[in-house]
Amino acid sequence: MNVEGSAFGPVFSEFDGSQPQGEARLVPGRDSFLDICRAGARLAGAQFCVALLCAALLSCLPGSAAAGVDDKPARDLFGAVTTPTTGAARPLGFFAKGCLAGAVALPLDGDDWQVMRLSRNRNWGTPVLVKTIEHIARDAHRAGWPGLLIGDMSQPRGGPMKTGHASHQIGLDVDIWLTPMPSHTLSRGEREEMSAVNVVTQDRLDVDRSIWTPAHLALVKAAASQPETTRVFVNAAIKKALCRTAGSDRAWMTRVRPYWGHDDHIHVRLACPSGASSCEDQDAPPSGDGCDEKDLAYWFQPSVLHPTPSPPRPPLTLSALPDACRAVLMEH
Rank of each mutant, 00 (worst) to 15 (best):
S225I: 09
P160Q: 08
L242S: 06
L316G: 06
D292W: 04
H165T: 05
V234P: 06
S183G: 08
A251H: 13
S277C: 11
A24H: 12
L58P: 09
I176V: 10
R269M: 15
S13Y: 12
I36D: 07
A89E: 10
A297Q: 02
A241K: 10
M181Y: 01
A46H: 13
T185G: 01
L106P: 00
T185P: 02
H306E: 10
E293Y: 02
L321P: 07
A51L: 13
R244D: 11
D175L: 05
P302I: 06
W260H: 14
D292Q: 10
E190H: 00
F94Y: 14
P307Q: 03
T245F: 03
A320K: 15
A196M: 05
V11Q: 14
T213F: 01
L186S: 02
D35A: 11
S225M: 06
G110T: 00
S195T: 12
C291G: 04
C60G: 14
V232P: 00
P73M: 02
L34G: 07
L58T: 15
A88W: 13
G79S: 09
L57G: 12
L242N: 05
P182D: 00
S274P: 06
V232A: 02
R42L: 09
D206T: 03
V200I: 08
P156D: 09
K97L: 15
T229D: 02
K162I: 07
A324H: 13
V69T: 10
G159C: 06
V256F: 10
R250A: 12
A65I: 13
L318G: 08
V115G: 01
H267E: 08
L43K: 13
S225W: 11
A223Y: 00
K131F: 02
E331N: 12
D152N: 11
T163V: 13
W145Y: 00
D152V: 06
L52M: 12
R244T: 10
L186W: 03
R269D: 14
D289V: 02
L106K: 01
R25G: 13
S195V: 11
G29E: 05
I133L: 09
I266D: 09
G68I: 02
G247N: 03
T245V: 06
T132Y: 09
M1D: 12
L186T: 01
D76H: 11
F12Y: 15
S6K: 05
A327P: 07
I170N: 10
Q282N: 14
L316Y: 05
L77H: 08
L129Y: 01
I133W: 05
G158F: 06
G164T: 11
P91M: 11
I170S: 01
Q155N: 13
L217Y: 04
T83R: 15
Q21P: 07
G79H: 09
P322R: 10
D206R: 05
T308P: 04
C272G: 09
H332K: 14
D31Q: 13
G29V: 03
A65K: 12
V200R: 07
P311I: 09
S225K: 04
L26C: 06
S32H: 04
E293W: 04
R122E: 04
V81E: 11
L106C: 03
P214L: 04
A251Y: 09
P214M: 01
G5H: 08
W124L: 07
V11S: 15
P214Q: 04
S167T: 10
Q47N: 12
